[in-house]
């Protein structure tokens, strides 16, 4: 019955066209930080874009990490709920970690600043596929108790980042061992 232990990841892309106050805060704070921190890899201001900085100096990839500190406090306010994606009942999915990613930026044009937040769920148990839909539970696969399930539709931006097949024989053995 149980197929695998998985982790889902949802990538929320945020740019100048994004409209929520959360997205605007992320864009504003990370762009201001980009203008400061990118100078470490662009002392003479020769390069206008993040892509050019990376091509010139691979250490510019540190900006993903350096800029993340400017937005962590906004992400904290999400209370570990992914702001966009929901299950089929309209409940927000919980995330375990959120990784900030700088996609592109331009030191003279804030409208080209584009970032993403990759929300990663905790380990979930995939019970079954139903077309585009995943039947999931947060409960441990070896539990004998009826588990609460939820259904999520695969959609753009949502992916499975981690997959470990569950051996049914091993589960049966675990259940037999349970006192």
């Amino acid at each position: 019955m149980y197929k695998a232990k998985i982790k889902l990841v949802y990538k929320q892309v945020i740019d100048a066209s994004s409209e929520t106050s959360f997205e605007k805060a992320i864009i504003h704070a990370s762009y201001q930080e980009f203008l400061l921190k990118s100078q470490a890899y662009n002392a003479e201001g020769k390069f206008k874009t993040f892509s050019r900085m990376k091509a010139n100096d691979g250490r510019a990839n540190s900006l993903h990490y350096k800029l993340s500190f400017s937005v962590l406090h906004f992400i904290e306010q999400l209370d570990n709920k992914i702001p966009v994606i929901k299950d089929n009942l309209g409940n927000k999915l919980s995330f375990d970690t959120a990784a900030f990613e700088l996609i592109e930026s331009h030191i003279e044009d804030s409208s080209l600043h584009k970032v993403a937040i990759n929300y990663q769920t905790e380990t979930l148990t995939l019970i079954d596929f139903m077309g585009d839909y995943l039947l999931l539970t947060s409960a441990d696969a070896k539990s004998n108790e009826p588990s609460e399930t939820f259904v999520v539709k695969m959609q753009p931006g949502l992916s499975i980042m981690n997959y470990q097949e569950i051996n049914q024989f091993a589960i049966n053995n675990l259940q037999l061992e349970t006192p």
Partner: peptide, 16 residues
């Protein structure tokens, strides 16, 4: 207007 998106403790500036 709501003003700037509030930081975690309601601070006006970055908590860092």
């Amino acid at each position: 207007t709501e003003g700037p998106y509030p930081y975690v403790g309601g601070e006006a500036t970055n908590p860092l």
